[in-house]
Amino acid sequence: MKLLPFQPRPPAGESRESPEHAVGRMLLENLDGLYSTAYRLTGRADAAEDLVQETAHKALRAAASLRDQRNLRAWLFTILVHAIRDHVRRRRRWEESDQQIESAPAGPDLESLSQAAVQDVRDALGRLSPPQRAVVLLVDLEEFTIAEAARMLQAPPGTVASRLARAHQALKGLLRAYGSRSSELGGQP
């Protein structure tokens, strides 16, 4: 059986609901986020359903031995991200060369994002490499910290921060390109 990652000890004397109930509740509360992440990283609805189901199964089985309920949400996403990575690796390469960035990216281009159509934003996300997309989904969309995302992705935090910066640059470039294409076509946000 695979060991599930990070389960820090609970603070002494902290009262809590049963681990099975807490995991069940957290699964249902985060089902959309889990499914979204799985769908956006695999690009397939059936695979996303299977991966979320697998995540739920593993989490419920491990719930009894869970020692800490403080960061259950991050724990569920960790299980999911590991399952997705295994799934994606079976189909294509997940790894990317992770050069450190020299500096933070230039200021965000709010204008092109605010003018972009929803579908363009989703397409742009879909065009990122899986590791870059994963970090954008976890940090920007699911609002995890760099440290949490790094634990989920089993990568050094510095690498994840650099990957996020590169993903942001790539997204800005893609959205600007969509914006110019849209203006040429008479533009509809």
């Binding site: 989703r122 940090v139 920007d140």
Partner: peptide
Amino acid sequence: WSRLLRAKAGAEPAPDQLRERIAGEIESH
């Protein structure tokens, strides 16, 4: 920018059948 990205990308809602299956699994567990 992150807030806008979150809003534009939205969430893919989990299909009802998946929600039912997960709820069933939680209950049986």
